[in-house]
Every structure is written in structure tokens, then in C-alpha cells.
Design a protein around this nucleic acid. Structure first.
Length: 477
RNA sequence: GGCGCCAUCGUCUAUCGGUUAGGACAUGUGAUUUUCAAUCACAGAAGAGGGGUUCGACUCCCCUUGGCGCUGCCA
């Protein structure tokens, strides 16, 4: 008995470089990557740049960068624009075999046909009589034609396929029409190029968004004409915006760049995206890449679309941020700090790490902490605690200044001791109202109504700045 | 209009015919507390409607409704 070797798992990510990497593409890429990794298969990255008008190298670069940033490494790389010979070869064969033909209808004629069909409540599609013409030389273009596949519009056949996620899916062949394959021998169109490539690249599973589901029967027909075998299909549920329509620009941040720029962590994004349409067996939601790979299966992918919920992303990201130690978080946060506050001393930023770890959802939020990097500006009246008044506020600040400046070895700042002194002050002079002491101190140090604990801030910014800021506060009218 | 896909808390989801329908995010309340966060505890919150099948349906089938996608000589 010979051992049956399992066919190699090969999947592909096939973006077209007509725009920047989009959240939806990234998710599709991620699922392909997870599937490949789970089965120790290969991931093929294929740039679908047959539309030269709209494709650009800049977009291609953006897409590649985004995927790399996410940590999705591919094993093979192709560009359709470099494979024109392959498409031409198959196109010629199809033409010779009379499975494909040149269609010379004008766009106006096509438009009219479609209009008529719509009025007759028929499926809009092109049924081309040119396929019955017997051209002398079928391969050559006799005018301004395009190449179409001959599809029998009278067939009663149902084109079926088994989708791993959706199960049986069927389309009536007669609603498909004589679909377009290429503008000319060296300008293939999407569906045709995909089928040629998926075959030649030995793709075993096509995992793509549900928006491609209607392309599948077309691709099946093309594959049959080409005489090649079909991959398995899996159509992923769409990522939706708040209004439940397909996620797009009008929903806000859909460019992957924006998430990189906002300081989301690649691991967090992988984690979050993997949970859009998929869930782990054990129900846990914070999972490492390896855990996701291990548990991943297409059978567990949901059928219905999933709304992109930034709040959950934020929560997941904050969970990842909390996992870093001071050193790690400091280097993560440094570029963002320097972007807003200029060059900073690493030793100083290291002191901020605990504050950031507790409070950041994404790294760009460091911009909220400007009082660590410069002197605060604020209106004098916010110094006054709600249960207090101007006079008491002044008194409190003076007392705090005294406590901090007199009996304090600042090099060994003892938070506990300071706190007990300030508490004692509140007890003795403000009837136990600690807010009367801490609130003015906070505002003096930060210029904000909301902030981390003022004693912690004092420790971080150091003696000189602390005393100075209190004095500034005291001079406010 | 045609074709197709989908349908459990506000959101992401669990349940593979028998559960008080579970978890997470979000929300609310409370604890902590000098504010805001963080943290902890608790709470409210769901099977679109109608028919079947079955001893028993969220789960299987059909219809309705609704949502979405596709409908290019774009991908």
C-alpha cells in the first residue's frame, strides 16, 4: 500500500495595486496566511496589475509594506503584468479551439442590449452572435474587438460549486452570457488572468471576499474551457461599516496606513482581524499569532458579515500594550513622542512607561500627555477644586510647595511619604478634603482637569519643574 | 430590475435537536478614589415573522420580510 501524499496547500493573496492596502484586503490576506500556516502550506502574493491605467507602483509598494508590517510573509511573488506571454498562449489556444471568439460590438450596442434585457426583466448579459461567425483566422483581431468566452445561453446547466464556508452555491449558466476574457491577446481581463494564474501557480484554495462569489461561476466556465482543474473555494464574509454596508472610504479609516500611523500593534491587529468572522475553539479572545494559527480553520468561519468595531480593536490593542515591560513600551512609544514633542531623553521616557501602559489604547495617544514635555498653559480658575475656593486653593498650593521643597530628598523621591504628608495636610487644614490639596496640584502640574495622579507626575518631572510649576500657579491671578 | 449570499444581545461571537441561550467589547451601577483612566464586582441586553418536520427546535426544510453583495472592454 503506497502512502497517499496530501496535495500541497497553496493559497494566494491577489491585490490589485489600484489603491492603498485596505482593511478588507488585509483581513483576506491574513486569513490566507493563517490557513497556509496552519497547514504548513505556501502563500503566494500575486499583484493583479492587468489594468495598467489604474495600477501604480506606489500602491504596490504600499500594499507590500502593509503586509510585511502585519507580519504576513509570502513564499512566492508574481506580477500579472510580467506574465503576458502566459495569458497570450492560453488565449490563442482558446481561439484556435473556437472556445473563445472576437466580439466586435461597440459599447453603445452592449449598453442597448443591457437596457433591453433589464426592461424585459432578464439578467443583463451579452449574448454575442459573433461567436457563430466563422472567421478565417480566428486568432487575429479583425477590428476593434475583444475576446470573449463562448457560453451556451440555451444551456439549462446549473454551475455549482462547494464553498468551504458556504456549502452549495449555484448559478444558472444562461444568466452568465459570453463573458469577456481579454481586450486583446496581451491584455487579459480579471477573471481570465485569475484562472490561468491559479492553475499555473497550483493554487489549492481560493480564499477571498464574498464580493467575489459571482465571479466564481465565470471562473469555473473559463477553467473548463481551458481544461484545467479547479481549486477549492472559500468566500469570506465581508467586513462592514457601522451601517452594515461593505466597508469603504466613507466609513472613515479604511486605509491600513492609518492604523499603522495611529500606533496599533501588528499583533493586536492580527488578533482583532482574525476575530472578524472567526472565533477560537476555547472562546478566548486574546490570542498570540501562533495560537491563532494552531486553531485556525475555515470551517469555523462565519457566513455573515462583521462590522468593524474600533472600540473592540482599541481594547485588544490596549491589552497588548499592557503586556510590554518599561523598556519595550518605551521604544514603542518613542517615535510617537518625538513626532509630537521633539527629541527626548530615553531615561526620562522610561519613567513614563507605567503611565502609558495603564492609559494608552493606541500609541498616538501619547500626544495627550504634553505636560510631560513642556510647561502647561491653563486658565487660573480651573485650579480651584469644586468644593473649594480661590483662597483655599492658594493656601493649599503654598502648603504643598512648602512640604515638597523643604523636607524632601528629591533623588529618593518617596511617593508614599509625600502622600502621607499631603494627606496629613488635607486632614489638618482642609477638613479631610483631599481634593482641596490634590486638585490644585494636578492642575498646577498639568494644566488639565483630568490626569494621572499628581504625585506620580511630580516624581516623573522632577523637583525643579514641580516646584516651578507650583510657583507659576501661585502667581496666577 | 436580474442573479446570489446572509439572518442569536447595540457590536464580535458560542451553541453542531433537549442549555436558566454562554463569553468578550460597549453600556449602566457599585467598589477603589484627589480627577480621568486602569482594575475588580454586579446588572441590563438576543434567537426577524409565519408555516412545517420532530416527543422536543435558535439549531433541519419551506415561505415571507429584511440586510448585503454582484450585475464593466475594473479588480
Amino acid at each position: 500500500m503506497t502512502k497517499v501524499r496530501k496535495p500541497e496547500i497553496r493559497v494566494r493573496v491577489a491585490p490589485s495595486p489600484t489603491g492603498n492596502l485596505h482593511i478588507g484586503n488585509a483581513r483576506t490576506a491574513l486569513f490566507n496566511w493563517l490557513f497556509a500556516k496552519h497547514h504548513t502550506g505556501k502563500l503566494i502574493l500575486r499583484i493583479e496589475d492587468t489594468d495598467l491605467e489604474r495600477s501604480s507602483l506606489e500602491f504596490e509598494k504600499n500594499i507590500l509594506n502593509g503586509l510585511e508590517w502585519l507580519g504576513l510573509k509570502w513564499d512566492e511573488f508574481y506580477k500579472q503584468s510580467e506574465r503576458l506571454d502566459r495569458y497570450e498562449k492560453h488565449l490563442k489556444k482558446l481561439l484556435e479551439e473556437k472556445k473563445a471568439f472576437w466580439c466586435y460590438h461597440s459599447k453603445e450596442e452592449l449598453e442597448a442590449e443591457k437596457k433591453e434585457q433589464t426592461q424585459k426583466k432578464e439578467a443583463p448579459r451579452h449574448i454575442c452572435e459573433h461567436k457563430y461567425m466563422n472567421h478565417e483566422s480566428g486568432i487575429m483581431n479583425q477590428g476593434a474587438g475583444i475576446i470573449r468566452l463562448k457560453v451556451d445561453e440555451n444551456s439549462h446547466r446549473t454551475v455549482r460549486f462547494e464553498d468551504i464556508i458556504r456549502g452549495h452555491v449555484e448559478f444558472e449558466q444562461r444568466v452568465i452570457g459570453d463573458l469577456s476574457l481579454a481586450k486583446d491577446l496581451r491584455t487579459p481581463l480579471y477573471n481570465f488572468a485569475v484562472v490561468v494564474d491559479d492553475h499555473e501557480m497550483k493554487i489549492s484554495h481560493v480564499i477571498r471576499g464574498e464580493d467575489h462569489i459571482a465571479n466564481t461561476p465565470k471562473q469555473i466556465l473559463i477553467a473548463e474551457a481551458l481544461g484545467v482543474s479547479l481549486p477549492q473555494f472559500a468566500h469570506l464574509p465581508l467586513i462592514l461599516g457601522e451601517d452594515r454596508s461593505k466597508l469603504s472610504k466613507r466609513h472613515g479609516a479604511v486605509n491600513f496606513d492609518e492604523y499603522i500611523g495611529a500606533g496599533y500593534l501588528p499583533e493586536a491587529l492580527v488578533n482583532f482581524l482574525s476575530l472578524l468572522g472567526w472565533s477560537s475553539k476555547d472562546g478566548r479572545e486574546i490570542l498570540t499569532k501562533n495560537e491563532i494559527i494552531e486553531q485556525f480553520s475555515l470551517e469555523k468561519v462565519h457566513k455573515s458579515g462583521a462590522i468593524f468595531d474600533v472600540k473592540k480593536l482599541n481594547w485588544i490593542n490596549s491589552q497588548y500594550i499592557k503586556q510590554f515591560n518599561d523598556e519595550g513600551l518605551t521604544s514603542l512609544v518613542m517615535p510617537f513622542i518625538e513626532k509630537y514633542f521633539g527629541k527626548q531623553d530615553k531615561v526620562f521616557v522610561l519613567k513614563l512607561a507605567p503611565v502609558f501602559r495603564e492609559r494608552l489604547e493606541y500609541l498616538d495617544q501619547v500626544k495627550e500627555f504634553k505636560y510631560f514635555f513642556g510647561e502647561p498653559e491653563y486658565e487660573a480658575d480651573i485650579l480651584v477644586w469644586k468644593k473649594s475656593d480661590k483662597e483655599k486653593t492658594h493656601k493649599a498650593l503654598e502648603s504643598v510647595l512648602e512640604i515638597l521643597s523643604s523636607n524632601l530628598e528629591w533623588e529618593i523621591f518617596d511617593e508614599k511619604y509625600i502622600r502621607s504628608e499631603l494627606d496629613k495636610l488635607a486632614e489638618e487644614k482642609f477638613g479631610g478634603d483631599r481634593g482641596a490639596v490634590y486638585w490644585p496640584l494636578r492642575v498646577a502640574l498639568t494644566g488639565e482637569k483630568f490626569s494621572p495622579d499628581p504625585v506620580e507626575i511630580a516624581r516623573i518631572i522632577g523637583k525643579e519643574k514641580t516646584l516651578n510649576r507650583i510657583q507659576v500657579a501661585l502667581k496666577k491671578p
